[in-house]
Design a protein around this nucleic acid. Sequence first.
DNA 1: TTATATACATAAGAAAGTTGGGTATAAAAA
DNA 2: TTTTTATACCCAACTTTCTTATGTATATAA
Lengths: 114, 114
Amino acid sequence: MSNNNLIKGSLQTIILKLLEENDKMYGYEITQRVKELTEGEIKITEGALYPALHKLEAEGMLTTEIQQVDNRVRKYYSLTKDGQKEVSAKMSELQSFVGNLQRILDPEWKPGLA
Amino acid sequence: MSNNNLIKGSLQTIILKLLEENDKMYGYEITQRVKELTEGEIKITEGALYPALHKLEAEGMLTTEIQQVDNRVRKYYSLTKDGQKEVSAKMSELQSFVGNLQRILDPEWKPGLA
DNA sequence: TTATATACATAAGAAAGTTGGGTATAAAAA
DNA sequence: TTTTTATACCCAACTTTCTTATGTATATAA
């Protein structure tokens, strides 16, 4: 990520969630998707992404499949069954954390009221 | 923080924001306030808190003042002028980060719609 | 008398990033 | 034609920030 010392810990969730929505993605594609969705505000660095992908694969959350496209190698990742379960877990963890953050930082804040 | 490896870097923002609202707080008080506000869901560990306070002080964001209360020492922290500026900076950083997270994780999400 | 609460602090280690490097192909710009 | 940019993968050194464990000290509750 760039310009953000925040995020540590949410990268895994981002990867898993994108793969839940897209079924199959390769590393470079993930960086571009995130850049797109955030209008360039979050840039996932390769030094963060690839180790995270390898770790998730080692933990059995992802499987890989290599494809040749235009003489270039692409490594596609998809969710395993464990990975599918993990998406929900990580998502609710993150959502409850963000909710708690709001309660700390914005005393006016109530869930569901913008 | 406990049970939450999420969003490293938000502890500083939490400290600064609480001090903006309360003018003057001591370490233990901060841990209790956060526990209160999140109904026990976020527990700031002392191993995280005290180094963070010392760092913010070293950076000139906070000043300290020691008080004796019931034979116990309390170290009160307050914002410096630089600290006051930093609160706004950190808050908008964090808010924009959370917004970007929503854009990635919840494609339906629009700002201001719950 | 022992555990819990209050109140500070440090230190070893883990986790997860950044930064900077490397390899390789293809297309666009200088 | 050479260099830069884009695509596509990877690793290693380092830094930051947290967890876990420990230590000191007083006061209160079990």
